[in-house]
Design a protein around this nucleic acid. Structure first.
Lengths: 306, 306
DNA sequence: CTGAAAGCGCTTACAG
DNA sequence: CTGAAAGCGCTTACAG
C-alpha cells in the first residue's frame, strides 16, 4: 500500500479550504531582552502542546520594532494563518491594532487596556499583587517598596496597581521613593534594588523572579540579610525561585496553562465554536518560602506564647 | 490609492510558486525541560532575525516524543515549508532521518554523528572543551572532574571527548568516578556535584552554565570555597555567568549567531545558491573570571616574585 | 449517496 | 517586451 506515503499539499489545501490550520504567535520584541526570561519558553510550550493535540502548527514571529511593519504584513497576509495569539500586551501595540481592525481572529495573553471586547487569557495581576503585598503588611513590615516591570506592559501596570491597592487597604499611602522600575532582567533588578536601599525599606515586592534574583544580589553585596533586614516577595514562581538564597516567596502563575488555553480559545474562535468565554482568568497562588520571613514570624509567635 | 492595502494570498502564492518562504524550526523535546534553558530563546532570536531580514517566516515545532510522528508528517507535508532547521542533534533522531531520506532541504545546529554530508552550523565542542580543561590543568589542578550533558546529544558527547582529550594531552587517564552526567538543568548540576564531592576533585569542567549554577549551590552547601577548594569552568557564557558567586570562567559560544547563520545557510540551500560551505564552525572563547582561580594564581606568582 | 467539475488566487511559461 | 491563459493540488458545492 504505497498510498500510506501520501502527503497532501498544504498550500493547495489552504487555498481550497480557506484555512491552513496554522496559528500565529507574536511576541513583541520592543523588549527583546525579555525573551531570555523563562516566561516565553513556557508559554510557547503550552501553545505548542495544544497545537499538537488539535493538529495545528505554530508560526512564530518575534516582532522586533525595526521589522514591525513587515511582521504585520505577514500576519494579515491572507491565507497564511487562521488566527493569531499575541503575547505580552504593550500599552500601544500596532500589531494588535492591525489584527483588530482587520477582524483577524486573535487572542491575547494579557488583558487589553482599551478594547474590552477582545478575547484574552490572563491571571488577575492586580489582585494577586495586592494579596502578595498584603501578606507583607500583615507580617508587620512598615516600609514596603516595589520593583515594577516595564510600565508599557499592561500586566505590569496592573501589578503596580495591586501594590498601591494593598497599601490603601491598610490606610497607607504609596511613596514614590519606594517605587522603582525594572525591565524584567536580572540586571535591572540589581540596579533598582541599589536605588531603593537608601530609602531603607523593610520589605519589597518585586514584579518578577528574574528581577528578584538581581535584587537579592544587590542586598547580599550591601550586607543585608533576607528576610531579617528586608523581606522579599516576588512574582512568577519560576523553577529557580525555590533555590535562591533564601528561597523566594513568590506568586505562582500557570504560564504553560495560559499558552495552552490561549491556543484552544483561538481554535474555537476560528471554528466559530464560540463556547469559550471572552476572558479566562487563571488562578494564582502565593507560594510562601523563606524570603518573606513568614516562617520566622511564626516561630517567634511560638516562642512568645511559651 | 486603495491598492496599498492589498495583501497577496499566501496559500495561492505558495501553490503557484512551489515555495512558501517559510522555514521550519524543529526543537526535539525528548528533553523538554531543556527548553527553559536560555539557549533556545537565543537561537530562535537569531533565526528570527535572519528571517526578518530576508522576508521569510518561521514555523516552530517543539517535537514532543508523543507527537513525533505527527510533527514529522507536518514537516514533510509538501508545500508547507521550504526547508527546516533542526536544533540540538540527538544521536538517534527520527526527524532527521525523515527529512534526510525525503530530500527536504535542511540544516542542523550541531554536527550529525553519521551522515557527514549534512549541512550544519556548530561550534567545535570538542576542541573548546579540551582547551577549557587544559586551562585548569595548566593552573596546576590534579583531579579534574566533569559534569557532562545528556549523552544522547551529539554536542555534549563531543564536550566529554574534549575533556578526555585534555587529560590525555597531559599524560593523564580519565577516571570514571570523576565523570557525572547531568541533563542541563540546574537541579541536575546540583545532584551531579553532590555525587562527585566524595571523590575530592580539586577542579571541575561543567558542560553548561545552568548546570554550573546547581553545582555552585551544592558546593556552597558543602562549605567548599570556589576557586580555593575547587575550581570551576563552565560552558555557554550565558548572561548570568558574569554574576554568579564567584563569576564563572566559561566557554563563550555565539548562540544568536548560530541561529542566524543556520537560517541563512538554509535559505541558500533552498534557492540553490550553493555558495555556503557544508559546515560552519563558529568561534568560541574561554572567558576567564573568578571561578577557575587563574586570577588568584596570577596574584600568587606576583607575591612569590617579590 | 456518489463522483466529476469548478474554483480557490496566485505564478510563470508561452504566444503574440 | 507585454498580456492572456494554463496550471499549481486541493476542497466543496452541485449535478446526477
Amino acid at each position: 500500500m504505497q498510498i500510506l506515503n501520501y502527503q497532501p499539499n498544504a498550500a493547495a489545501r489552504g487555498l481550497a479550504a480557506g484555512r491552513t490550520r496554522i496559528l500565529g504567535l507574536v511576541i513583541p520584541m520592543g523588549v527583546a531582552y525579555l525573551f531570555s526570561d523563562p516566561y516565553f519558553p513556557r508559554l510557547i510550550q503550552g501553545i505548542s502542546r495544544a497545537c499538537n493535540q488539535h493538529d495545528y502548527s505554530t508560526m512564530l514571529w518575534l516582532a522586533e520594532p525595526e521589522y514591525e511593519h513587515r511582521t504585520i504584513q505577514q500576519i494579515v497576509s491572507a491565507a497564511m494563518i487562521d488566527g493569531v495569539i499575541i503575547a505580552s500586551v504593550l500599552t500601544d501595540d500596532a500589531v494588535i491594532e492591525a489584527v483588530y481592525s482587520r477582524r483577524i481572529p486573535f487572542v491575547l495573553v494579557g488583558r487589553h487596556p482599551v478594547h474590552s471586547d477582545i478575547k484574552y487569557v490572563d491571571v488577575d495581576n492586580r489582585l494577586s499583587a495586592r494579596d502578595a503585598v498584603l501578606h507583607l503588611l500583615r507580617l508587620g513590615y512598615k516600609r514596603v517598596a516595589t520593583i515594577a516591570g516595564p510600565l508599557n506592559m499592561v500586566g505590569r501596570l496592573d501589578r503596580l496597581a495591586g501594590y498601591t491597592d494593598a497599601l490603601k487597604a491598610r490606610g497607607l499611602v504609596s511613596d514614590a521613593n519606594l517605587i522603582a522600575e525594572g525591565d524584567f532582567t536580572e540586571e535591572s533588578g540589581y540596579r533598582a534594588m541599589q536605588q531603593l536601599l537608601p530609602q531603607a525599606p523593610d520589605a519589597i515586592f518585586i514584579a518578577s523572579d528574574t528581577m528578584a534574583l538581581g535584587a537579592l544580589r544587590a542586598l547580599r553585596e550591601a550586607g543585608k540579610r533576607v528576610p531579617d533586614d528586608i523581606a522579599v516577595v516576588a512574582y512568577d514562581d519560576m523553577p529557580f525561585a525555590a533555590r535562591t538564597e533564601p528561597p523566594l516567596t513568590t506568586v505562582r502563575q500557570p504560564i504553560h496553562r495560559a499558552g495552552f488555553v490561549a491556543a484552544e480559545t483561538l481554535m474555537d474562535l476560528i471554528n466559530e465554536r464560540d463556547g469559550k468565554p471572552r476572558r479566562v482568568i487563571l488562578p494564582t497562588k502565593l507560594v510562601i518560602r523563606e524570603s518573606c520571613g513568614a516562617h520566622r514570624a511564626a516561630e517567634k509567635r511560638m516562642h512568645t506564647r511559651r
